[in-house]
Simulated scan of single mutants.
Amino acid sequence: MSVEFNSSLGQLDVDYLNPKAADENLKMRPYGDEPSGCGRMCRRRPFKTAAVFLGLLCLLLLAGIISLQVHYTKVGDVHDSEMRDIQTKYNNLTDKQNKLQNNYSNLKQDRNLLETKYINLTRERHQLQISYDTLTKLRDDSQTSLTSLRKQRDDLRNEKIQLAAEKEELQRRFELVTSSRDGIQEELNSLSLNMTEKPCQQGWTKFNGSCYYISTSSKTWIKSKKDCEDRGANLVIIDNRKEIDFITRFNDRTWIGLSDTVREGKWTWVDGTDLQVGAGFWQRGEPNDADDGEDCVELSRSGKGWNDVPCSNKFSWVCEE
Rank of each mutant, 00 (worst) to 15 (best):
C58S: 15
T73R: 11
A63E: 02
R84I: 03
H79I: 02
Y72V: 00
E82S: 11
N92I: 01
L60W: 07
T73M: 07
K96S: 14
L93I: 04
I86F: 14
C58P: 00
C58H: 12
L60I: 14
I65V: 14
D85A: 06
Q87M: 09
G64P: 02
D77S: 05
L61K: 13
Q69Y: 12
Y72E: 02
Q69N: 08
M83V: 03
V78D: 12
V70L: 14
G64A: 15
I66P: 03
K74N: 13
L62G: 08
L68C: 08
G64W: 10
I86S: 15
H79R: 15
G76W: 09
V78F: 01
G76C: 07
H79M: 12
N91W: 00
E82D: 06
L93D: 00
H79D: 10
N91G: 04
K89L: 01
L62I: 06
T73Q: 13
K96F: 03
I66D: 02
I65P: 00
K96M: 02
V78W: 04
N91Y: 01
L62W: 13
K74H: 10
E82K: 05
L59Q: 05
H79V: 01
L62H: 04
N91T: 10
L68M: 05
I86E: 11
L57V: 07
K89C: 00
Y90V: 11
I86P: 00
E82M: 11
Y72G: 00
